[in-house]
Design a protein around this nucleic acid. Structure first.
Lengths: 225, 225
DNA sequence: TCCGCTTATAACCGGTTTGTAACCGCCGGA
DNA sequence: TCCGGCGGTTACAAACCGGTTATAAGCGGA
C-alpha cells in the first residue's frame, strides 16, 4: 500500500512518513504542490495525505490535479480555524480531513478508515519497491523477475519493515519492536537468525547479500536498486 | 542535549524518539521503570520525558528515583482523565506534563520551553554543519564532499556531541559523561583513544587535525568552517 | 497421535570495537 | 635542571558483534 504525503513543513512530513512507514505503508513524499503532482504521476500512490496550507495555497490545486486523473482517496490536513478551506477541499473531491495538530495514531486510524471505505483495505496489496515485490496476502516475495518465494510470518514482518524503509538503514531495535513487539534485549540472537534464514531464501548468494545488507553496528537495510 | 524518553508503548516510544532525534536531540530510551532508572544513571540525560501509566504505575517511582539524585527537568505524560495522577506527579517534582494524545510538535515546543526555563537552552543542534554531515541512521559521516566514513557507536556519540556544539569547545568531562555515562574520572585515557581513532578516520592528516581540534587543558572542538 | 515446519536457544568462530597500559615528547613550575 | 601533568601514540587484551551451525521446543495439520 503506497501513500503519498505532501506537506511543506519538512519536520511534519518526516514525522508523517515515519509513522506511516512504521505502520507498514510504503511512503513517498513531496514538499510542495508541483512536485506532489509529479510524484503522484510517477508513483501512482494508493492514497494521498495532503496539506492544504502550502505556499501558494496550492493544496487545492494539487487536489484538483489529482482528481482530474484518478479517484484515489485523498486525506486533507488543515489548521483548526479554517472552515471554509475545508468546505472547498471537500468540494474539490477530498475524502476526509484532519485538523492539525493531530497525533500519528489518529492519522493512521483515519487512513485505515479511508482505505476501508474505498474498499482497498486488504485487497491484494503487493507492497513493492524496485526489484522487491512483497505480497502480504500470499506471504510471498518476488525478487526481480524470479519465482515468488514463500515467507513465514516473521520473515514477512521483517521484510515489510525493511521494504517500507527501502534503502535506509533500520536499527535492530526498531526491527525487534516491529517483529516481536519487543522482549528483553537478549533477543539480538532472534534477529540474527531471522535475517540469516531470510537471506537463505531471497539471496542468490546468502554469503554476499545483495538485497538484505547489514549496516555494522547500526542495523540492516534493504537495497532495491 | 540528551533526552531520556520512557514509555512502555513501544510504538509511541519510537515515535517520540524519532521526533526528538529529528529536532536534533540525542535520545536514549527505556521501556519500563527499572531500566529507566538504570539508563538515567548510565546516561545522565539533560531532560526526561516520562510516561506515568506503565505496568506497576512505576512512572511515579521513576520520577521519585530521579528526583532523589538530580534536579533534571522531567516532563510527564498522562492520559487526559487522570487528574489526581497529575497532582501527584507534580508533587513528586515533575516540571511539566502533557496529556495523551499529543502531537510531536507540541511535545517539542513544551520540551524547549522546559529547557529554557531550566536555563539549559540550546541552539537547535543540527546533524550537519558546514563541511561535516553526520548520518545517525547509517552511522556515517561525510567530510566536505568526500566518501561517507563508517563510525562505531562511540565515535558516533563523540561526533554527535561535538557537532551539536560545532565551533565551541566541549569539555572532556562533558564528553566523558555523554559518551560513557559517569565513570571514574581517571578515564581520560578512553577519550584520548577515541579521539585518536576518530582522527584516523576523518582527518586527512591525523597528526595535524583540521576538524577535530584539541583545546589544551579544556577539551576538544569540532571546526566546521 | 505423529510429522513437518517454524521459532527459540545455545555454542562457536573470526573480525571489529573497546578498554587498559606503557611510553614519548612537550611544557611549566619548583 | 628535574619533575609531573598532559596529550598523542603504540601495543595488546578483553568484550562484543554478526554469521553460522546445531539442536530443542512449539504448533498446526494429516
Amino acid at each position: 500500500m503506497k501513500v503519498l504525503a505532501v506537506d511543506d513543513d519538512r519536520d511534519l512530513l518526516e514525522l508523517i512518513g515515519f509513522a506511516l512507514a512504521q505502520a507498514g505503508f510504503l511512503v513517498v513524499k513531496a514538499a510542495d504542490g508541483p512536485s506532489a503532482v509529479r510524484v503522484f504521476d510517477a508513483e501512482a500512490p494508493d492514497l494521498v495525505v495532503l496539506d492544504i496550507n502550502m505556499p501558494g495555497a496550492s493544496g487545492f490545486q494539487v487536489c484538483e490535479a489529482i482528481r482530474a486523473r484518478s479517484s484515489v482517496p485523498v486525506m486533507m490536513l488543515t489548521v483548526r480555524s479554517e472552515e471554509e478551506d475545508l468546505v472547498k477541499a471537500l468540494e474539490l473531491g477530498a475524502d476526509d480531513y484532519l485538523t492539525k495538530p493531530f497525533s500519528p495514531k489518529t492519522l493512521l486510524a483515519r487512513i485505515r478508515a479511508l482505505l476501508r471505505r474505498a474498499g482497498m483495505e486488504s485487497s491484494a496489496p503487493p507492497l513493492a519497491s524496485g526489484r522487491v515485490a512483497l505480497d502480504v496476502e500470499e506471504h510471498t516475495v518476488r525478487i526481480g523477475g524470479g519465482e515468488p518465494v514463500r515467507l513465514t510470518k516473521l520473515e514477512l514482518r521483517l521484510l515489510q519493515m525493511l521494504l517500507s524503509n527501502a534503502g535506509r538503514t533500520v536499527s535492530s531495535d526498531r526491527l525487534l519492536v516491529h517483529i516481536w513487539g519487543h522482549r528483553n534485549s537478549g533477543d539480538r540472537q532472534l534477529l540474527k537468525q531471522l535475517v540469516h534464514r531470510l537471506r537463505q531464501k531471497i539471496e542468490v548468494d546468502p554469503a554476499l547479500p545483495r538485497h538484505l545488507q547489514t549496516a555494522a553496528g547500526a542495523g540492516y537495510k534493504l537495497v532495491v536498486e
